[in-house]
């Protein structure tokens, strides 16, 4: 029996290879090739993805701007959150499906694209933001629901959300510029 010892740096190289191989395998699938090589399918999915920004980020921005006390000051925060949420989820669904298809179509080239990597990291961060917001300050929303100036932590969450989403849009556009 041969004792194989793998150092941490070697392990990292192996993991990187696994991810790259996965991307290459996805790139070679029928679906990926079909989207990439069709004249119209890729632009159509891309257009829906771009216009979907309005449904997802636009509705999130409305709530964030209310949290910052910039619009709809007389409306309770929870009211706006409840009204906007179904549309935010609709937007998320549109963006997720079209984004996944675009990723599949360019899996191997995206692997090397640093804008794509940054976008993925920002997407994870932007997912954590509402999670923290809802588990902490939003639990006590009834104490500050109608106030013009919301608690500092709510305003920080809104600023983080707006900044992260802006970063995601910037990184997303950069993917195509770096191709």
């Amino acid at each position: 029996m041969i004792n194989v010892e793998i150092s941490r740096s070697e392990m990292r190289i192996i993991q990187r290879h696994i991810l790259l191989h996965l991307c290459q395998w996805v790139y070679g699938t029928h679906l990926s090739t079909a989207i990439r090589e069709s004249v119209w399918v890729f632009p159509i999915i891309e257009t829906i993805h771009v216009l979907g920004i309005t449904v997802l980020v636009g509705t999130i921005a409305i709530l964030d701007l209310r949290l910052l006390g910039m619009i709809m000051k007389r409306e309770p925060v929870s009211g706006i959150a409840r009204q906007v949420l179904p549309w935010t989820w609709t937007g998320f669904f549109i963006m997720f499906v079209t984004g996944l298809l675009l990723t599949i179509a360019e899996a191997e080239t995206n692997y090397y694209n640093w804008a794509f990597r940054i976008k993925l990291i920002l997407l994870i961060l932007v997912g954590l933001n509402p999670l923290i917001f809802h588990l902490t300050i939003y639990r006590k929303v009834n104490t500050w629901d109608i106030s013009n100036v919301t608690p500092l932590r709510a305003r920080i969450a809104a600023t983080c959300s707006l900044t992260l989403w802006a970063g995601i849009i910037i990184a997303g556009r950069m993917i195509a510029y770096l191709h």
Partner: peptide
């Protein structure tokens, strides 16, 4: 700008 404008128009 599209994100803000489009979102507001949509709503």
């Amino acid at each position: 700008a599209l994100a803000i404008f489009g979102g507001a128009v949509l709503l």
